[in-house]
Simulated assay, not measured.
Amino acid sequence: MKAAFLTATGAPEAIQYGDVPDPQIDGDQVLIRTHTMSVNPIDTYVRSGVVAMDLPWPYFPGCDAAGVVEAIGANVKRFAVGDRVWTTNQGLLGRQGTFAEKIAVDEKWVFGLPDAVSFEDAAACALVGITAHLGLFREAQLQPGETVLVIGGSGGVGSMVVQMAAASGARVIATAGSDEKAEKVRGFGAEEVILYKTQSIAEQVRQFSERGVNVVWETRREPDFATAVDVMAERGRMVLMAGRDAQPPFPVGPFYVKECSLHGFVMFKATPFEMRAAAEELSRMMATGKVKANIGASFTLAEAAQAHALQESATLGQSDRLCGKIIVTSNPES
């Protein structure tokens, strides 16, 4: 089969494309013929070695994929050959990644894909959708009628947070870097959009919500705790899922006087039970149109290195070239 793979960590150009042996499944695994994969910032960190993990060699990058079951192990109960499925949380903690025409995945990380949802949408929504669901409902325990501020509402995770929060009955305020991105964010369900390059986030939030916001979702690599605490309502919650090396100052006094709470989490540490509960709800939301994919660019599997370069330019270089998720398509007919 064809795959995009690494024989050592490095720059995007370290990704090779070529023939590799087909994977062999064990009793608990599902063999998936992939149709679509996606690229996440964590993929670039693992590929480059910035985030050190035990990796199988050759290593296929990628956490997400959607495709069709081609074979099942003897112990697999939930799936049959021919089922449409999607997966996430691969390529991490010693697991093989998804950038190949066929992948062997433990059943606990595989989820059914409704007929109404395309492979492209499922792959694009996978990791970011699970992240949004865990952060909003497991961590922040968002309730209908509350107000959410999403910093970075047009990005991969941010667009999922906006849509899920709006679908749950929350009022959503989000930031965007341009008029074009602001229009997209409004389409995701944000009632108000702040153009952060020319407008003060704190001042605009006060105009939109005098009592402040109940949840602040931060997507930037350098969190702004001063602004977050300033705009949070009493007992506000702040969610962090980025900024691995960040060490910004923190306004302790205003934070505890307001009885606020801070929730840091990484999606790939969720238990299989937590992951499956969030995944099944995400599948329902995609099937009913409550959540839609935010696809910003598409590449073929042979172009995996270019896909990684684009993701890296957006994540580390703060480039405006990307608005949404990068998807990568294989050749399911080969």
Rank of each mutant, 00 (worst) to 15 (best):
S319F: 09
A277V: 12
V229Y: 09
V30Y: 07
V117K: 04
S154K: 01
A14N: 11
L55G: 02
E203W: 06
F250T: 12
S200W: 00
H35P: 08
A124H: 05
M238P: 03
F273H: 14
Q29H: 05
T219I: 00
Q141M: 13
G212L: 10
D83P: 01
I295K: 04
P12W: 00
T175W: 03
K269A: 15
D64E: 00
V76H: 11
S168H: 14
G152C: 02
V229F: 03
Q90D: 08
T98E: 11
A11D: 15
S159T: 04
D64R: 05
P58M: 06
A11F: 14
A305E: 00
S154N: 09
G18E: 03
A304K: 10
P114H: 15
A278P: 02
V50H: 15
Y196V: 02
A14L: 07
A202K: 10
S200Y: 00
T88L: 07
E120I: 08
F99L: 15
G10I: 11
D245E: 14
A124K: 03
A314G: 12
R284D: 13
I295N: 04
K290G: 10
E13A: 14
W86T: 06
R78M: 01
F265C: 06
T44P: 12
H35G: 13
G82N: 05
S298D: 13
E312N: 10
R284L: 14
R221D: 15
A190K: 05
N89I: 11
A226W: 05
P41K: 03
A279N: 03
V291P: 09
A170K: 04
T198F: 00
G289K: 01
R206P: 03
G264I: 08
L55E: 10
R221I: 14
T44G: 09
I201P: 04
E312M: 06
D121K: 04
F268N: 11
F273L: 15
D224S: 07
A277T: 14
G324S: 09
G10F: 11
S209Q: 09
F225Q: 07
G264F: 12
